[in-house]
Structures are given as structure tokens and as C-alpha cells.
Design a binder for these strands. Sequence first.
DNA 1: TAGGCCAAGATTTTC
DNA 2: TCTTGGCCTA
Length: 672
Amino acid sequence: MTAVKQHYQKELNPQQIRAVEAINGPVLIIAGAGSGKTRVITYRIAHMLGAGVPQSAILALTFTNKAAREMAERIRALLGKKLPNLIVSTFHAFGVRVLRSHIHRLGYRENFSIYDTSDQLSLLKETAREMKMPLENLDLYGTLTAFSRIKSGSAEWNEDTAQLRPLYDDYQSHMKLYNAVDFDDLIQIPIRILREHPDVLDEYRRRFQYMLVDEFQDTSRQQYDFMHLLGVEHQNVCVVGDDDQSIYSWRGADYKNLVQFENDFPGLCEIKLERNYRSSDTILAAANGVIAHNTNRKSKNLWTGTQGGSPIELAYPEDERAEAAFIAEKIKTLAMREQLKYHDVGVLIRTNNLARTLEEGFLAENIPYRMSGGESFFQRKEIKDMICYLRLCANPDDDVSLLRIMNTPRRGIGRKTLEQLQEYARSAGVSLFSAMHALSAASDSPLAARAQADLAEFTALIDTYRPKLLSGKRMAETVTALVAEIDYWSHLVSEHQKNDKVAKWKFRNIELFIDIMRAYESDPDNLDPGLFAFLNRITLQLRDDIEDDDDRGKINLMTIHAAKGLEHEVVFVAGVEDGVIPHARAIEEDEANIEEERRLFYVAITRAKRKLFLTSCRRRKVMREVIDCSPSPFLEEIPAELITVSEADTTVDQSEAADYFAMMRARFAKSS
DNA sequence: TAGGCCAAGATTTTC
DNA sequence: TCTTGGCCTA
């Protein structure tokens, strides 16, 4: 018996062992919350390797970078090996990989740019402007969503969307001209390559004899197609999921994939993991009570052997600041009385904008925290500027990047000049950068001499740095020099005249960015340290995926989406109010979304191992106005006997509040 | 013609 | 609150 086998046979229950050992043929693992899924997957892969499956034959796909990284780490730790040929990655990252090797088959070049939402947005605006569509009556965000649905195959053109079609076609042809792809393309284009080029399909099928898809409930139609394409021949496909934790339908996740899987892979082996090892029975009962209100679930009976958890505490703080104070104070108390470690605490929120007040509260109480998810470091304005410089160097046809930086810092290239450039670019069918070259050099250029000189200076800048960056050597130093040459610091200072702290902070971010770059290019385990690989990677990653310094000693603040797959001894869910969970916008969009919102709440609850706190503010500041809030309807779905309402922060009416402040003032006066 | 200033509106969640 | 876009001025 192998060492791995000895290990897991002791540690796992019979269903889990089945899930580990069923490596041939299609397998569907329904893994309830806290049922030891990650452990099973880890052992499963270890077991496969132990059974003689080469690492290069395994393709494990997950949904988030965090999950991918964690899985890879766990397997490595278990086996004590590096496993350089084992691929554990997100669908999108794997898509990039396929594109890097084969995108030329569809007429793109290998130095393609990847556009994130903000790039897409700029392109969309640009396209609309060009087509003389008034921006006011165009719902940009909604349009992008519609485009995405079309691209990812979760919707067809219909009467409602038909009017967007010319815009879409133009958007697409621009993307092609710029040699750029968006997130949907990262799946869609590989699918097209595999379908249109049997030799490529064959190559991948021969290599990846075993596939594993985690968080299967979150796969979109196109991701499913991708998986199916690669796995249908050998049928060694294992998918792991839990329909109750499907929280990404807004991104195209389609629970129908489960049914589809059962059809496409007949004779599959279905394994249910229903024993919860994570949460106390109180927490589990609350979670079950909530999720039972959803229809359309695969039947499941999650149970735990643990008895007698402490009750769930519910508090009604006055407003979001009181909420932050309440949470901070509870954490301090628990840390003191029960030796709770900060890193064992998770504070979960529905939306990122709730983070700010909480962060302030933690800062005030000196509680170290880490915010994960949220705005990516790489989305920050100053970082995005740097990235666009790099992208333009990598791919000079990338007009979106060019537009962003051509006047950042100010170079005196104004509206008129730009219009002339665009006119030229359009008629010649070339990118703006080529147009710049052409018009700045031409003697019969329609541009003013001044403008010509400005353009020439800009193109010279890019042309100088391009070869240096592409050489793949000392990129970090090159970027440092670039930042100095464009004098980005002065730009920051002039942009933030009232507030030089902000300028300093932003500059510090740029230094951090350069550090990340340096770490990337000097990592000996990195097989592809060039500029393209770096750019590709950072567009797919949140900051927090890169920071792997130890986060022990910090509490974890994150959105519920980001918390999926994680667990904490103590969990706080903040903002459990109607309109927040369930989110007003989601419900507005479609009433049926209530079920997904409920699943979200379910995911939040089931992150807790020992103790769960819920807070629901009576008032909350939204944008700039204070609104009255009512508790989330989901609270009523938790069996009442499991909840105690926290005394500390029950309603304080106005007169009492006034008294309280008077008392505090008096006390303060006395002691000073 | 470029850049500064002011008013209005906004992203729910992530690759 | 912060960003974006439009308008006005030099």
C-alpha cells in the first residue's frame, strides 16, 4: 500500500474514499458545503499520480485563481514534490495557454492584449462615438453584458438586442484590429481553434487523459463545451460541485450543465459527500433552514456529527459605523477571552463598497486585516497606466492602451490631433500607433508642426522602450527608467495638488508594481518570464493572489463571492439587510434571482466553523444619503431558536443617544 | 486647441 | 465619495 493510500484510508469516510479512487470513467461528485471537498480532490490527484498517471496527463480546472493556487499547493505539500507538469489552473488561464500556442491559426498574433472590463468599456465608448451613437441612451454596462451573453453562448440575438448588433460587429472588428481579446474570448477562441483544427484538438486530447473540474456548478455553457471537447473521447472526466453554492449565474454559470453532463457522459458514477466536517450543528441547521426555501435543488442532506454549537448572534447596529465598531469590538473580546487568532476570523460582505467603513473600524481598533477580492491592485488608475504603457510596447496595435496613455502625462496631444489620427487610421485600416508614425513623419501631414513633433516624441518613446522590454531582461529596471523618463511623479503631483499623500501613495503603488514585476522575472520556477506572459498573468489576477506573504495574524475581510471555498472559525456577515442581501439590483433585474441571493447567504453562513455573527443596520449611508434599512428577509428563514439577539446594540432612540453622548462627555471631562 | 474647472452620476458579485 | 464628461477660458 502506498504512503498516500495509508494516509487517506485513515482520514476519509467511505464516500470520500470512493471519490478518491474512482479515477477512470466519468464521475460526478456532489460535495456539500464543508464536506472535505478540497481534501478529496487533493488525495484524488495524489492517488492518480501514485497509480502511475503522469502529471502531464492531468488537467485540473478551477474557477478562481485562489482555488487553483491552493489546490496546487496542497498537492505539492502532500507529495513533497514540485510537479512542474501538472496543470492546475483556471479556465481562463488555461485558455490563455492555448492561445499563446495556437492563436495564429485564427489570424491573431501571439502578442495579443487581454482586455478587462474597463478596457472593454473604453472600447465600447470609442466604438459608439465612432458610429455616432449618442452615449446618453446607451446602457454601457448592460451592453457589455449582452455582448458577453452572446459570445459565451448563453443568449442569442433577439428583438431586444438586435439594435446592438452593428455595435457588436464593430466592437469585434476593432478587437481583431487591435490584436486584443476579452475574457469571453479566452474560452471562445480556444473552442474555435479546437473545432476548426483537428490536429490541435488531437494534440490536447492525447495529452490530457484525465480531467477534473472543480466548482462545476459555476461553469458557463462555453466552459462546459470546452471541457466536453477535450474530455468526451477518453471520458475520464471528474466534475465536483454543489448546486446550492452556485453563485455566478450573472457571469454565465448555468446549472443545466449538470443535466448536460449526465447526458453527455452516460454511465457516470455519482458520489455524494453529505457529511459536513466544518460547522457546528447550530450553524448547519441555520444554513439548511435557509437553503430549504429554494426550489430546484438536487436533493441533499447535509449532516454533522458535532453537537451543541453556540447560538448565532444577531445584532442591529444603528448605522454602518456602529456596525464596524460592534464587529471590531467583538473580535477584540474573542481574541482576548478565547485566544481566538485574528486569521481565524472572516468578515463577509455582499458588496465591495461595504468594506470601507469596516476597514476604518478595524484601523481605529488596531485590528490587522486583509481585504481580498475587491478592486484589483492592477485596476488602480496609476497601475493601469503602467500596464497600458507595457501593453502598448508589447502590442503597438492596442489602441485602447494607446488612447489611455498617449496624454498621460500630458503631452499636448489634443482632441483635434486625435481626430485627425483616427480619421487616418480608419481610412488606412491601421492602428492609431501606425497612424501616429505615418502622420508625424509625413511632410504633407495635415497636422500642425507642433502636433507632429509631439507625436514623434511619443512614438520615439515607445520605440525606444519596446525592444528593451521585449528582450525579457531586466524588465523591472527598464520600467523604472520609463517611469522616470515620462516623469510620472510630477504627473501625480499635479493631479493631486490638494493632497500630496495620495500622490505619494500612488507612487508607492507603482514601486510595488515594479517589485512584483521583478519578483516575476527573477522567479527561478517561472518557465516563461517574458513581458507577454507577465501581462497576461496580471490581467487574470487579483492583487491578493500575488501577495503570498504570510497573512497570519490578520482578519479576513472579503466579499461572499471571494469567500467561497474558504472557512473560518468565526464568521461575521455584515450588512444582512434587505436590499444588500438579497441585493436590490439583482432582484430588480429578475425576481428569480432571489434564489441565487439565497445561495449566496447560504455560502456565507456555511463558511463558519464555530461561531456566526450577523449584523443588520437600521440605517446605512448609500452614496451620499442615509437610508432606513430593514433586516434581510433571509433572517426569518433561520429557525428562531438558533438565534440570540445581541443586547449590546439594540435600538438606541434619539434621546437615549443624546444622553449617552452627554455621559461620555462628562466622563471625558472628568478624566482629563 | 489644450487643459482646468465644475457638475452630475455611479459597479453587485469575478475571470 | 470619487470619477467622468462637458464646458469654458486662455
